[in-house]
Amino acid sequence: MNRETRFWTVMFLGGCLFLAFQSLGTARGVGQQFVVRVDATTGKIIPPATGASDASSAVKTVIYEPASKDDPEAIWSFSRTAGIWIAALLTLCIFSYLYRDNVCYKLAESIIVGVSAGYWIVTNFWEVLVAKVLVKLAPNVARYSFLPDTPVDVKADYLYIVPVVLGCMVFCRLIPKIAWMGRWPLAFVVGTTAGLKLTSFLDADFVRQVRSTILPLVVFSANASDVSTLDWKQSIQNIVIVISVLSCVTYFYFSVEHKGLVGRISRVGIWVLMISFGASFALTVMGRITLLTMRLQFLFDDWLGLVRI
């Protein structure tokens, strides 16, 4: 056993001993989760079952809501406790990448690839294929199976067979002889996106941005006695915005060589962009640190229960 293996073995055993102590030696335990049983139809809390004749066994639609351990009606939840443990171990697996690429990290990575693919397929199945396609093509089937709130007077709209057929044509790409048919749905998606984005980008990201840049360079504001005075703060702000946008746009204008006056203006544009990137970098770092803090809070509070408030 080399020195490195010995170090990590000692660390692992130390961690296990600490977890064992926390689990058995403290009142809060490690990752213990408690819930109350609630009747989904009435919203009333169901007291913990006391025997076979208990009235709560007659309730068919029970949901579980998180509760404090001290709540007299709270019961220990195996699934949520196991969930906290699994989430904590997976978090540590991901953090282990900071040391180097290893089996634990790859395991967590493989899990997330499978889970995220499955997650989006399931979400789209219920939100699009059932909520849009099934409701449009067979509203009665939708009402009697998954969506009882579907209005009774909804008529079937068989025009929606077209996108289903188009969608199924995507799978033609898997058969080389008819792979060319797979281009039709792709063309539909690309055409729709191009048409939608052309107008929306032109409106939101071009016209509105240009309009927002056309600002008064000298701003006067009325004070309490209704006398208008120079609002130098707002004026400076507007001047800086207008000059900055114009210089940045000049920098992005490549049809003219950046020499002389154009070169000097585009240089100011680079400075503005650098300041903008510096601020964006700082905001990104802060966002990531906030996420990191939340993960550490999860580990030390939700899982280990070390945080005392």
Partner: peptide
């Protein structure tokens, strides 16, 4: 000021790029 201006210039550039690409596709 600076962040708004920088982002605005980039957005204008992106919008023009998207419009040009969309027109080429259509």
């Amino acid at each position: 000021t600076f962040v708004t201006a920088g982002q605005r210039a980039i957005m204008i550039g992106i919008a023009l790029g998207v419009v040009a690409t969309s027109l080429r596709i259509l």
